[in-house]
Design a protein around this nucleic acid. Structure first.
Length: 707
DNA sequence: TTAGGGTTAG
């Protein structure tokens, strides 16, 4: 925004300019004229703009025309015109008019100061405040509010101490400002000290505590307020319901709902939105739906509250229906609605639905919004389309730390380690401060791409040069980097010497690497540690059991099976699924329950014949049943991911990409087979397993056989 | 409908 003085250098002295003598007549006349004008305007038909229209008019010439009709526009009329300019973001115009005023009262000064703050010009607001002949309590409070908005807590405190008179609104501004700036302890201290409290003080304190993660304390304050006899209004109930939603305080929330119904506050959209979120968070999604359908007014927040609530409860299809309804009606979705809708697309793993939502965002000109953009990057990555995620990322003009983390983590999942490193360099060059999620993404990239040295350097760099607190997940990622590269001894030393207390996650990373590099001794040691820390850790049992099975140690396998059965530990069966035309098709290993089973098995047999022609030999180490070799081979042929791929091949357009999701890690034999299948059918096959994405094309996999 | 203090979804 242009600085005011640069545009109107002489206007500071404009008070001394001569004005038409008629302007200086009594304010009574002005008021009379103004009222007369208003009466005329209110009777005006569509043959011309109304006076209020003129006051807020974006066209300065028209407003000037109105001004000229008055012999003496009074200070109230001027103030209204200033407000009109401020509301349309024309600060310089407003200031020009302000300095042209013959007489200025305190209200007009305060309006102008507030306008500067709303237009994000704190310096101008301060200049006006300093210039003001006699700042009122309102002027002081407006400035305090402004300092808090700009994060200048200490300056707000100085003003509060300096102000000659402190009324309740000033105290309330301090309470709110402290909470807004995460200084909730200061707010509580002041709240306890203040000479008197009104409903706004109580509401500010409840809302402030809740917003700062102290929802339980917020509810205690709410109960204190009730006992002190202060009657809550719709804002108080909104805040209290939000606190109930965050603290999952179902009984109190129900009571508040009862009060809302009795008091008639159910007409408030704020209260309704909080009620919907409260019920959704407490997993009472039917009640949330009921509140939504009973709401008298439905705005974008209410619709988004339901859409988000559905997502939280796994009702993703219903959430997307709400979103689609919003697109069809006058309640158009905003950035928050898009974030929730895209999250649901992610959970449904539906790239098609995600693309539809993306198209809607572009239609509503929200495609370049940073929040929507971040959700799009995540959606494309998680739905298997990392190239599209990169396109969205590159097109985003505004990027924040979440954007960078989203794309780095996306690259990590897809084994694009070098891209992740390049993005990290760009991030540093752009002076974006990395955080703990960035480090997780980078280490994960290194482990999925076999970048041992990079991983070591990054870990050292982050521990020595940043204030980021290294957590278990970072140590576990580093163990993964070392272990997957076969540096098992170094990984074990790293675990034993880590400054944090080891947990099962860190040892599991090591155990997983042991299986990959066939180190049974270390695997048994790691498993013992894990089971010592977490006796019911199913992952440890399964990993070890599979290890024994690969080594044909069937006695140990059955011993572990008995222990697992005695402890009630259930091994999760392998499942794969594909989504075709919005419908999810799920397969288990050797599954024959699908209606197209006959065709699926026919296709698989044909594929197996082709595989053998290409020299494929099944790797029986990955068949984990205690059966004869021939049967082992057969069980490999019908692993769930192969059934899903065969189904996709017979039901989708030739040449299109096939995306299969799997709950467990893909086995080595399927990995080899799918590389060849992609070559045989000349299609890209994407498999997302529990660890990462594999892109199979022309006989090779994007992971470079390293995962 | 001339100014300052409190509210909803993510």
């Amino acid at each position: 925004m242009m600085r005011f003085h640069a545009v109107f250098p002489n206007l500071r002295c404009s008070c001394t300019r001569s004005f038409p003598s008629s302007w200086l007549s009594s304010s009574e006349t002005c008021t009379h004229l103004s009222k007369h004008f208003f009466r005329r305007a209110s009777h005006a038909t569509c043959d011309g703009p109304t006076v209020s229209g003129h006051l807020r008019n974006e066209n300065p010439d028209e407003t000037q025309e109105v001004l000229d009709k008055f012999q003496c526009p009074d200070v109230r009329l001027f103030t209204k015109m200033i407000v009109g300019r401020l509301q349309t973001g024309r600060l310089d115009d407003a200031l020009k008019l302000f300095y042209e005023m013959p007489v200025r009262d305190s209200i007009c000064w305060n309006t102008m100061i507030k306008g500067c703050l709303d237009c994000v010009d704190l310096t101008m607001a301060e200049e006006l405040f300093d210039e003001m002949p006699e700042p009122s309590v309102v002027s002081w409070t407006t400035m305090i509010n402004g300092f808090f908005r700009f994060g200048q807590v200490e300056r707000a405190e100085v003003f509060f101490k300096q102000m000659p008179i402190r009324d309740l609104a000033a105290w309330n501004a301090m309470i709110h400002g402290y909470c807004e700036n995460a200084r909730v302890d200061n707010a509580v201290k002041l709240f306890e000290q203040m000479p008197s409290r009104n409903v706004i003080s109580w509401t500010s304190m409840i809302g402030g505590l809740d917003q700062n993660g102290k929802s339980e304390e917020a509810l205690n304050v709410f109960e204190r307020m009730f006992k002190s006899g202060v009657v809550p209004n719709s804002s108080t109930l909104t805040c209290a319901l939000s606190a109930c939603a965050n603290a999952l305080s179902f009984p109190l929330g129900m009571q508040i709902h009862g009060h809302v119904l009795k008091s008639g506050f159910c007409l408030s959209v704020f209260v309704c939105a909080s009620l919907i979120t409260f019920y959704a968070n407490c997993k009472r999604i039917e009640k949330a739906t009921q509140v939504f359908y009973e709401a008298v007014h439905r705005n974008v927040v209410i619709c988004t509250a339901l859409l988000t609530g559905y997502g939280l409860n796994g009702w993703h299809e219903d959430g997307l229906k709400v979103f689609n309804d919003m697109m069809r009606t006058s309640v158009l979705p905003n950035q928050s609605s898009f974030v929730s809708a895209l999250n649901s697309c992610c959970s449904l793993e539906s790239l098609d639905r995600g693309k539809e939502v993306h198209a809607s965002a572009v239609k509503l000109q929200l495609g370049s919004d940073v929040f929507v953009g971040n959700s799009l990057v995540v959606m494309y990555s998680k739905c298997g389309a990392v190239d599209d995620a990169v396109v969205v990322f590159k097109r985003l003009k505004e990027k924040n730390i979440v954007t960078w983390n989203a794309i780095i983590c996306g690259c990590a999942q897809h084994g694009r380690g070098m891209w992740a490193m390049e993005l990290f360099s760009q991030m540093i060059r752009g002076l974006v401060q990395p955080d703990e999620i960035t480090l997780t993404g980078l280490l994960s990239s290194c482990s999925h791409s076999g970048m041992l040295q990079k991983g070591r350097c990054l870990f050292r760099y982050f521990s020595e040069n940043t204030s980021i607190e290294l957590k278990h997940e970072h140590y576990s990622c580093m163990v993964d980097v070392l272990g997957r590269c076969g540096k098992l001894e170094e990984a074990e030393d790293f675990v034993r010497n880590m400054p944090l207390k080891t947990n099962s996650i860190v040892w599991l990373a090591l155990l997983s690497s042991c299986r990959m590099h066939s180190n049974l001794d270390l695997a048994e040691r790691a498993a013992n540690y894990i089971l010592g820390l977490e006796p019911h850790c199913s992952a440890a049992y399964v990993l070890l059991s599979n290890f024994y099975a690969s080594a044909n140690r069937w006695g140990d396998v059955s011993r572990l099976r008995v222990t697992m059965r005695d402890k009630g530990i259930v091994k999760q069966p392998g499942r794969s699924w594909v989504t075709i035309k919005g419908q999810k098709h799920l397969f288990l290993s050797g599954d024959k329950s699908h209606s197209l089973s006959e065709n699926i098995y026919w296709k698989l047999d044909w594929l197996n014949m082709k595989l053998k022609e290409l020299g494929y030999l099944p790797d029986k180490r990955f068949s984990l049943h205690d059966v004869e070799d021939e049967q082992k081979e057969e069980s490999l042929f019908y692993h769930s991911e192969r059934l899903a791929i065969a189904f996709a091949l017979i039901t989708t357009v030739e040449g299109s990409t096939i995306t299969v999701m799997k709950n467990l890690r893909i086995c080595g034999d399927c990995h080899s087979a799918i590389k060849l299948i992609a070559k045989i059918v000349d299609r890209e096959i994407v498999v997302r397993d529990s660890s990462r994405f594999h892109h199979f094309r022309s006989g090779i996999c994007s992971c470079g056989d390293y995962w």
